[in-house]
Design a binder for these strands. Structure first.
Length: 951
RNA sequence: GCCGGCGUGGCCCAAUUGGCAGAGGCACCAGGUUUAGGACCUGGGUGUUGUGGGUUCGAGUCCCACCGCCGGCACCA
């Protein structure tokens, strides 16, 4: 960073000017003060951090930042945006009397540290701890008001003990669909034992062996082992959750290829919560786009299951459009469909075998490629359309996936573009069931016709039903799709041919990772291979030390390789002798570890009661900070701020865990995060030379819209801060150059918190100048003496002050810090004019100004507060309240328009009526001139707003 | 392709929710101060509110169409 203030020669700069150096002294002094005085420690109502006196008679507020991963590269200026925002809000609310809980910890398990360990041989704990230290240092220098007693790391043994404990709660729970709730597994066992529930085999419970019982129960557990197709990523040596795989079929982290294959893995039965996860979104105060993304991900489809009879028995299809059943002219099965074998005729067998082989060699990604030509093959068999009673051909095509619905579709080519293209490709029948509108035909430049063999594409939309009747059912004529669906569903249900049903896109969550740096599962296997949970008294199951981080060399492209978890190599850890109630026996430990999401699924609860050794959180403490405010309220964090990138990963998983904990009675809140706010991103310009190489952004100069690096012309682009774009700006540089308060102010002033914007270091000076002017209004720059008077404040300035107070308080409440700052600058500019005209700053003005500044620039505000003679922190001073009498004035200026153009302004009393306004306007010289003697055809007067004459 | 968000001075952004297009910052210009530079002080708004239509006495704001950028989903049955 090249300094814009060359040779800060001490002689030319006043000794007490608010420079970066002066700010640094002030800031570090107050940071020490806050730490020594435990200023931001929030009292709990119960448990180890209990302080009932501190809690009494205060409203509570729980403010939360999304859990950061402690990155090795440290913070850049984009990272703290949300942290500053929550800090400003938390400080503002403290001044309004709230008991504010604001803590900050680290999501410190994860792949990057392990990858680093593999390449360096250094234990990931060493690297992780160093990264956390560096991040703590950077954040402390920012002056964030966190309760330091509550700073946790997911890698702490005391923390992951409880992560394992929660895993066991989930493991020992099942979902009871009859009440749509998770229950303890013992209640299921009781149902089996009493005969209230039948076992899957029909065998009586008390005649089953322990192993049989165990397998029966495992089918219900919310955490279970499954032999399901997984996303195998050889490049990372681990499997990944669906949410961690990009649309391109590559890993979210590292961008390695991902392959589908079967493996035995721990899985979370999140899918049974689909309905609640979807429905409760409506009860949350979240940005609509995030809710939409979760809704899309959960993917609820309402439709019908319809049975088509065939020589191989009934073929069940799922459709969202049962109303178009009359137009179903063929069936398409997924190549993996179990009935394919039975349905293919002898003469087609050879071709079909070849097609299936070809399809299985094609990745899911390719099969979902939109631009690909449709492929498929006829089985030779026919099914009966249940409404038309006509035989329709059964085809196989790879565009139908086994993983969605039933792996079989009824094709309605007239109403579905994919089916339409397929029918055209293979010359299959197309029957219209809905008549498109005239507009649709116009748009396609086509004469209206119900012969859809001639249509240019399928028609999707509302249209009159045609060709949709049999002896006992008719949909024909004008009716809504919903209406038609209901008629069809009722008809199908009555004849046992199908039923209305709902499917979800959300799959169960693959929960194991074949890595080292994660929480070990509290699970052991006996000699029969049956899983047992490790009792609570033996938690935590500690991660064993590992000295060899050498990677298992897997070819990222080799889909047939097998994962070998690093823990499998620690043989004396894997084999263990435990007494699980039936004497000491030898067990084999689970060698997979939990995914990184585990810790972040519940960390907010641990902030509440971080030192509790008896429970993961004291129930009374949880209820105080996160309990529902009313009967309808979900409970949860009062304000959760973070980036949009966690929309369907962390936010969905955490909601799921929280609901399980709620159902089992461990927490009173139904949702973890009641109000969510997405902050925008700070990005930065980057520059490339002729060869396409990025050049250091801070060394590029701009002249008249063109950019040069050295003598070379470079082109500008815009993107995330990072090493590859060479456009990183760090908070440390800002502290050195301007100080933390200026940096905080700039981050908050550059735009609304939710908006993304480009970083521009050159603009920061504007905020520094503001603070310098403010400082100069308080302190004599040359001597350091207080320059404040106790003289009365003139009325105009007093009115400006109260207007500012009202505006700033409203802006802070709604997180509009950018406009709050502009109002403070405005007031300070007014004050500066007053001071420059020979007055001194009135004490009664600077006092509320310091208070209003305090959330944004806490160090400077503390310093001014102390200079004004106060001996306690400004942190808990009440935020100023505007006097309504000083907000209103007696007169108001009203614009007068003639034909919508402003021609004059009149000054009237505030309460002036319409008639008063018109009379005053008509007697105004400029208005008379503009009217030119013409009597207005219409006169509009809006009280308090304007007057408009229409000629 | 579908869904969502956003387009306002050279740049980042305001605009009481339909009522005077401009609060604040950067940049820029002029003047003051200064040996000079920086800093500071005073003054200055540089515009077809992305484009085209519509509703209205009145549109940055509401409606329709289109263009551009960002994000999400994508043979989802």
């Amino acid at each position: 960073m090249t300094s814009s203030r060359p040779s800060d020669s001490a002689s030319s700069i006043p000794a007490y000017r608010y420079t970066a150096a002066l700010a640094a002294g002030i800031e570090q002094r107050w940071q020490n003060y806050w730490q020594e005085n435990h200023t931001f420690d929030a009292p709990n109502p119960a448990g180890p951090l209990a302080d009932p006196v501190g809690v009494a008679n205060r409203s509570k507020l729980f403010v939360l930042d999304m859990f950061p991963y402690p990155s090795g590269t440290g913070l850049h200026v984009g990272h703290p945006l949300g942290y500053i925002g929550t800090d400003v809000y938390a400080r503002f609310k403290r001044m309004q009397g709230y008991n504010v809980l604001h803590a900050f910890g680290y999501d410190s398990f994860g792949l990057p540290a392990e990858q680093h360990a593999i390449s360096t041989g250094v234990h990931p704990r060493v690297n992780t701890n160093a990264n956390i230290s560096n991040m703590r240092r950077q954040l402390r220098r920012l002056g964030l008001g966190h309760d330091e007693r509550r700073s946790i790391c997911t890698t702490d043994e005391e923390f992951y003990k409880w992560t394992q404990w929660i895993f066991l709660q989930i493991y020992n729970a099942w979902f009871d669909p009859s009440i749509s709730r998770a229950r303890h597994i013992n209640e299921l066992i009781a149902q089996f034992a009493s005969g209230k529930r039948n076992t899957s085999s029909g065998q009586a419970w008390n005649t089953m062996t322990p192993a049989q019982k165990s397998l029966e129960i495992d089918e219900f557990r919310l955490a279970y082992l499954s032999d399901a197709p997984v996303n195998w990523c050889p490049g990372l040596g681990t499997i990944l959750a669906n949410e961690e795989v990009t649309a391109e079929g590559r890993s979210d982290i590292g961008n390695y290829p991902v392959f589908r294959r079967n493996m035995r893995q721990w899985t979370m039965r999140i899918s049974v919560f689909s309905d609640r996860l979807l429905g409760d979104l409506d009860r949350l105060d979240w940005p609509e786009p995030i809710k939409l993304m979760q809704r899309n991900w959960i993917g609820r489809s309402e439709g019908a299951r319809v049975a088509f009879s065939s020589s191989a028995g009934a073929i069940n299809v799922f459709t969202t459009r049962p109303d178009t059943l009359f137009g179903a002219t063929f069936i398409v099965l997924s190549p993996e469909h179990p009935l394919v074998e039975t349905l293919c005729t002898a003469e087609q067998r050879e071709h079909i075998t070849a097609y299936i082989a070809q399809a299985s060699a094609t990745t899911d990604t390719d099969r979902q490629d939109d631009s690909r030509k449709k492929t498929g093959i006829f089985t030779g068999s026919y099914a009966i359309n249940p409404v038309t009673n006509q035989p329709i051909p059964i085809w196989i095509a790879d565009y139908v996936l086994m993983g969605y619905g039933t792996g079989a579709i009824m094709a309605v080519p007239s109403g579905d573009q994919r089916d339409f293209e397929f029918a055209r490709q293979f010359d299959l029948q197309i029957t219209a069931t809905q008549m498109p509108t005239g507009a649709w035909f116009d748009q396609h430049h086509f004469p209206p016709s119900d012969d859809c063999a001639t249509w240019p594409s399928a028609f999707v939309g509302e249209g009159n039903y045609v060709h949709s009747a049999n002896d006992t059912l008719s949909l024909n004529g004008q009716r809504s799709i919903a209406d038609a669906k209901n008629l069809m569903n009722a008809w199908l249900t009555e004849r046992n041919l199908g039923e209305a049903t709902v499917t979800y896109r959300l799959r169960d969550w693959l929960f194991s990772r074949q890595r080292y740096w994660g929480e070990p599962f509290p699970i052991v296997y006996d000699q029969d291979g049956l899983a047992h949970d490790v009792p609570e008294s033996m938690l935590p199951v500690l991660l064993p030390e590992l000295t060899d981080f050498s990677p298992q060399t897997l070819d990222p492209m080799d889909s047939t390789s097998d994962p070998v978890p690093p823990l499998a190599r620690v043989t004396d850890w894997v084999t263990t002798t435990l007494d699980l109630g039936d004497g000491p026996r030898t067990y084999r430990r689970e060698v997979n570890v939990m995914p990184q999401w585990a810790g972040s699924c519940w960390y907010e609860l641990r902030y509440l009661d971080p030192t509790n050794t008896q429970r993961f959180v004291d129930p009374e403490v949880e209820k105080y900070w996160m309990g529902p405010a009313t009967d309808e309220h979900t409970g949860g964090v009062d304000l959760y701020v973070g980036g949009v990138e966690h929309a369907v990963l962390h936010l969905l998983y955490a909601r799921f865990w929280h609901k399980v904990l709620h159902d089992l009675g461990h927490v009173s809140s139904e949702e973890p995060f009641h109000r969510l706010f997405n902050q925008g991103y700070i990005q930065a310009y980057a520059y490339r030379d002729d060869r396409g190489q990025t050049v250091p952004a801070e060394e590029v100069t701009e002249t008249n819209g063109s950019y040069t690096y050295g003598n070379e012309k470079v082109t500008r682009e815009y993107g995330k801060m990072g090493k590859s774009l060479k456009n990183i700006v760090t908070p440390d540089e800002m502290y050195d150059e301007y100080g933390a308060d200026t940096f905080r102010l700039y981050e908050m002033a550059m735009g609304p918190l939710e908006a993304s914007r480009p970083w521009n270091t050159l603009d920061v000076v504007g905020m520094q100048r503001f603070l310098q002017r403010l400082w100069r209004n308080v302190v004599d720059e040359e001597t350091g003496a207080l320059a404040v008077s106790e003289d009365a404040i003139p009325e105009t300035l007093l009115r400006q002050l109260h207007k500012c107070i009202a505006g700033v308080a409203a802006d802070m409440e709604t997180l509009r810090f950018n406009t709050a700052i502009s109002k403070l600058i405005e007031l300070n500019n007014d004050l500066t004019q007053y001071v420059n005209s020979g007055h001194r700053t009135p004490l009664s003005l600077i006092t509320p100004m310091a208070q209003m500044l305090s959330p944004l620039c806490p160090h400077l505000a503390e310093e001014i507060w102390a200079l004004l003679g106060h001996s306690t922190s400004i942190t808990f001073e009440p935020f100023p309240v505007a006097d309504p009498n000083l907000l209103a004035s007696d007169t108001i200026e009203i614009p007068v328009q003639v034909n919508g153009k402003v021609r004059s302004r009149i000054v009237v009393l505030v309460g002036a009526s319409q008639d008063d306004l018109l009379a005053a306007a008509l007697s105004d010289d400029k208005v008379i001139a503009a009217l030119g003697g013409v009597v207005p055809a219409r006169s509009i007067a809006v009280v308090g707003r304007l007057v408009n004459f229409v000629l």
